[in-house]
């Protein structure tokens, strides 16, 4: 009897096994291309970057293993680290300024737009329009506008009698970084605005109406109800601004050039990395070793701080049930 059932069962189990096999193949077919592309063009280079940072390089040729030598060169060699420190603090300035100017403005705009005033759709489109444009366009456009002689900004200032204020904005170390930060804020402010707006729209209307019935003023509603409940959006924007600030490259490259002109006042970690890796007047020949070491350091810095920030900011989020 036991033998009989065993012999009967086999073909059925075969049929099932075949179906399971087919399903496995199907899953492999679905997943393989994505995994292969990601491994080849993201994970492999990322891992190689770490590996490269501990070798000496001569152009495209890998030389001797030198341990932390490249890191030493980046961090401790005074010829390099003065650039590193200068660039790093410029990035810090960018982050703080963008948080205040760009995201602060975005928050106010979002709070206003959340009340769905007349022209609500128009405002959304207007604020978001620059976001869709290439940084190259924005950078060159404002470079033209900020031209000391023919630029619209100075022409405008002169025409309203503020001629004394007209100055070579991008030519002075005191104003160049500020001007670039404002251009960046102009370019991107629509993004945090609409992310904040979406977050505010997610707050149930009843909650805000209940607060209004309790006699809360608009300001109190914004501070006590909306602000705490839009925390997840704030987390995301802070972290994205942080990553964006320390990866900042396009605007300073286009408006100030690879050397962070004038006088390295607009130098950034991204520019320094580019110069170190691919060579320039100030950094000398292309050096993949120190370049990789710098990249690894920047990555560790960004990764560590954005993780800590995410943890901290997430802990103050309230779950909307």
């Amino acid at each position: 009897m036991a033998q009989r059932t065993a012999t009967i069962k086999t073909p059925f189990e075969n049929a099932l096994a075949r179906r399971r096999q087919l399903r496995k193949l199907w899953l492999v077919f679905l997943l393989f291309p994505a995994i292969a592309i990601l491994l080849t063009f993201v994970f492999l280079p990322m891992a190689s970057a770490i590996l490269y940072s501990v070798y000496e390089w001569d152009g495209l040729v890998r030389g001797e293993f030198i341990g932390l030598g490249n890191f030493q060169k980046v961090l401790l060699d005074p010829r390099n680290n003065q650039f590193l420190i200068n660039a790093f603090f410029n990035n810090v300035k960018v982050f703080i300024a963008l948080m205040l100017v760009q995201n602060g403005l975005a928050l106010i705009l979002a709070l206003f737009l959340a009340r769905e005033p007349k022209g609500y759709r128009f405002y959304q489109i207007a604020f978001f329009l620059p976001v869709i444009l290439s940084t190259v366009i924005i950078g060159f456009q404002w470079k033209l506008f900020l031209n000391p002689i023919f630029g619209l900004v100075n022409t405008l200032l002169r025409s309203v009698g503020l001629g004394d204020w007209a100055m070579p904005w991008l030519g002075l170390p005191e104003t160049a970084l500020g001007a670039m930060i404002l251009v960046n804020a102009w370019h991107w402010v629509g993004f945090p605005t609409l992310v904040f707006l979406a977050a505010i729209h997610r707050i149930p209307k009843d909650l805000i109406e209940a607060a209004r019935l309790d006699g809360a003023s608009e300001w109190m509603i914004a501070r006590d109800i909306i602000w705490p409940l839009m925390a997840p959006a704030v987390t995301i924007i802070v972290v994205l601004t942080f990553i964006g600030s320390f990866n900042w490259f396009e605007i300073p490259y286009i408006m100030g050039g690879l050397e962070g002109s004038p006088a390295y006042s607009t130098d950034m970690l991204g520019l320094l990395f580019y110069r170190t890796a691919f060579g320039s007047v100030s950094a000398g020949n292309s050096d993949f070793g120190t370049g990789s070491a710098l990249a690894v350091l920047i990555f560790i810095f960004i990764f560590t701080f954005s993780t800590i920030a995410t943890r901290y900011l997430t802990s103050r989020e309230v779950e909307l049930s």
């Binding site: 063009f41 280079p45 990322m46 970057a49 590996l51 990866n247 490259f249 990789s292 920047i298």
Partner: peptide, 8 residues
């Protein structure tokens, strides 16, 4: 950030 792996 793939930009930082630009060399490899």
């Amino acid at each position: 950030p793939l930009r930082l792996a630009i060399i490899p």
